[in-house]
Each structure stands twice: as C-alpha cells, then as structure tokens.
C-alpha cells in the first residue's frame, strides 16, 4: 500500500490567454489541468494499480481550481486538497513551494510525491526541485520504469547522458511529462462519481503560514510587466524549378549559419 500525493495546477489552455486594450491579462476560455500534471497523475495511477494505496491531489490556486482536482478524481485520484486564499494572489514559485510543502507535511507522510515537470503558463519548472530541497526528499526525474521493494524505490531513469537504475529509500519525489507516458482520458464512469464528495479546501491560516510569506509580499521575484508577442512570419513563397528552390533553401541555411560541416 503506497500513500501517494500528486501536485496539480489548473492552468489556462495557452491559446485562450489574451491581453486587453489596457494591457491587462484576460484569462478567457478553458481552464485545464496542466498537461504534465496529467502525466504525473497517470504515473501515480499505475503505481496504485500495482501496489494499492491512495492518491491525494494537492493544488494551490483560486477557488475554481477545485475543478482541476475534481477532474483528477475523474481520472482516478481518491481525494483532493485545495489550498486557496486571496492572500496567495501573486505568489511566485518559491511561495508556492513553501505552501505545497507545508500542505504535504500536514496531510502526509506520503511515500511518493508525483509532480509535472513544468506548467504551461509559468514555464519555470522550479517547484519540484524546490519542494525536494525544502522537504529534503530526493527527486527522481526522467524515469521510465518504477518498482517498489522493501520500502525503496527502484527507478530506471535518464540523467545527463546516462541511463541509470537507481535505488532510493522512500519518500521520493518524481517528475513526469509527455515523454513519461500518455495519460488516460477521463473515464465516464468516474466522471459520474467525481462530484459525490467535494474537495477539501484550506487557507493560509489553517496551514499555519504567515501572510507576509505569501502573495506578492512573500515573493522574491516580481513581475514588472507582461507584453504580448506578435509573431510575424514572412509568408514568402519560393519560386522556380525544384533545383532552383532547393538552392534557395540551401542559401537560406548558409545565410543563417545552419550548415554544419
């Protein structure tokens, strides 16, 4: 029996974030579970299928993030915990790490903690490393096979230019992304029951975190501004015979220093 936690973040589907006339970010359209987190949950589900146990999803976000945790239940998680507090607005990844770590400590101990490599909105990939450092729990990345034996995790993983087989005493944190697996789609049978029990919500006070360590106040990094990139493509059509167009392409390669000899 393995007690598993999965870190989950609700994010906007990239295309649906826009900037309005005043330069304010407008998050419209779909909110989804961060794709890498689905891979993390998929890995957790596979472990549960083999060794039995329970999966608790943990997320820090605004109240609507509970939908992401309910979706996780539709995929197979057993329960969800949402840390939500208006004072957390504007938190950077270090605050997020400390909040998640406090929650994991409070609801643990967990044998395995799965997390996605990076979120498609922030694109930092900090949290798993920092949770590992803050909780002093080893981190295994780029794994493709896992086994649990005598309270140790045996992992086949890639590190640097090596393929390694490692062993680590539990607890361990693991990160997953699209390369790790193809997450299963939500089972309609589970969707039916996903809403039977709600998600547990806790705030900063219940977690015992000082408000000065949260939100913008507690964040070492600040966002000065956000600007939209307007990507302009040339849309130039090459003309000529195959040979001529081929040579134009080669010229393009040379011009951009891309022909390596």
């Amino acid at each position: 029996m393995v007690n598993i936690a999965v870190l989950v973040k609700q994010v906007p589907a990239s295309q649906s974030v826009k900037m309005d006339k005043n330069g304010m970010l407008v998050r419209e359209g779909d909110l989804i579970v961060n794709p890498d987190d689905l891979a993390a949950l998929e890995s957790a589900l596979r472990i549960k299928e083999i060794y039995g146990g329970q999966i608790t999803t943990v997320s820090m976000g605004p109240p609507q993030a509970k939908d992401a945790l309910l979706e996780a239940k539709a995929m197979g998680a057993d329960k969800g915990i949402l840390i939500s507090d208006p004072k957390l607005k504007g938190s950077d990844t270090w605050v997020t790490t400390k909040v998640l770590a406090a929650c994991l400590k409070r609801f643990g101990p967990f044998d395995l903690i799965f997390a996605g490599v990076e979120a498609i909105d922030g694109n930092t990939a900090h949290v798993p490393y920092q949770v590992s450092q803050a909780m002093k729990i080893p981190l295994i990345t780029q794994f493709h096979a896992l086994k649990i034996e005598h309270n140790r995790l045996i992992a086949n993983r890639i590190k640097g230019h090596e393929s390694q087989q490692t062993q680590t005493a539990l607890p361990v944190i693991l990160t997953a992304n699209k390369q790790t697996n193809r997450p299963r789609y939500y089972d309609l049978q589970r969707i039916k029951h996903a809403f039977d029990a709600s998600v547990e919500t806790i705030d900063l006070q219940q977690l015992g975190i000082d408000e000065n360590d949260a939100g913008v106040k507690g964040s070492p990094t600040q966002v000065l501004k956000i600007s939209q990139i307007v990507r302009k493509r040339e849309n130039k059509r090459l003309e000529g015979t195959d040979k001529e167009m081929g040579n134009q392409l080669i010229e393009l390669l040379t011009r951009n220093n891309l022909l390596k000899t």
């Binding site: 909105d121 966002v223 501004k225 956000i226 600007s227």
Partner: peptide, 11 residues
Amino acid sequence: AFGGNFVASII
C-alpha cells in the same frame, strides 16, 4: 510565458 505568446519582465 503562457506558452510563448507573452513575455514577462521579472525583477
């Protein structure tokens, strides 16, 4: 940020 459609300036 946001999948490359935006750039954030951070300090």
